[in-house]
């Protein structure tokens, strides 16, 4: 059994009387690539935002290396610096260049020196193929380029887990490939990833674990071959049949 990094236990989240997540349970081990799939509104993104404490769970526990991070007195910013997040809408800092975007967190949160931060930033920007653009502002980049910078920004913090919230959903079709390629590259490098996605091919080929969510609960989870290849529940079959065209 590999090292367990994240353990989600009985996690629930309500917005007012609307229950978005119910009794979510799953575990992420080191090196896992977990694909969370499901229809829009099934709670996938909320789950991911709960994991990063951008939403406060109503009940349940999130154990990071065995320690609950949902309680009071937990240093949320400190925890988040270990858990990177890539957003659907990129969320690059509009007032900074590409390079500054990747440096600011290292300098302010990790307290690295400017030279060290720059070196790390450039290394990860090279990895995502954006090193030539260090002087550009986010508004001058295409969607795919922005998302690759956002990935480099998250990587530069040296996270143990990287969360992706529909990283390709806001992209033009021809830019999806470049972002997925970077993600596949990361996965093969052993990065632990939690990916909310509508890219079934990515879930099938890259992930090691698939979680299918339906109406706020985990309907089915297991290896890609199990969930995508041989689904047991009717809901899963119905959902997948919309992606299979034959």
């Amino acid at each position: 059994m590999a090292d367990t990094i994240l353990e989600i236990r009985h996690l629930s989240k309500s917005f007012g009387s609307h229950e978005v997540l119910r009794d979510i349970d799953f575990t992420v081990s080191k090196g896992d690539v977990t694909a969370i799939i499901g229809a829009s509104g099934s709670g996938k993104s909320t789950l991911l935002r709960c994991v990063n404490l951008l939403e406060t769970p109503t009940s349940g526990e999130i154990l990071f290396h065995g320690k609950d991070v949902t309680g009071r007195g937990v240093n949320a910013p400190e925890y988040r610096s270990h858990v990177g997040m890539v957003f659907q809408s990129f969320n690059l800092f509009n007032n900074m260049s590409v390079l500054k975007n990747c440096m600011v967190g290292q300098m302010k949160v990790l307290k690295k020196s400017q030279a060290e931060a720059k070196e790390t930033a450039i290394r990860y920007l090279q990895q995502v193929g954006m090193a030539p653009y260090i002087n550009a502002k986010p508004r001058q980049l295409s969607g795919g380029q922005k998302q690759r910078v956002a990935i480099a920004r998250a990587l530069a913090m040296g996270p143990e887990v990287l969360l992706f919230d529909e990283p390709t959903s806001a992209l033009d079709p021809e830019m999806v490939g470049e972002v997925l390629a970077v993600m596949q590259d990361l996965a093969s490098g052993g990065m632990t990833m939690l990916v909310v996605t509508h890219e079934m091919a990515f879930a099938r080929d890259v992930s090691t674990q698939v979680v299918y969510m339906n109406q706020g609960v985990i309907c089915e989870q297991g290896s890609p071959a199990q969930v995508l290849g041989d689904p047991q529940k009717q809901e899963t079959k119905d959902f997948l049949s919309r992606f299979r065209n034959n």
Partner: peptide
């Protein structure tokens, strides 16, 4: 959110 997500 972007800033919070990198631990600021």
């Amino acid at each position: 959110e972007g800033a919070k997500a990198i631990g600021m």
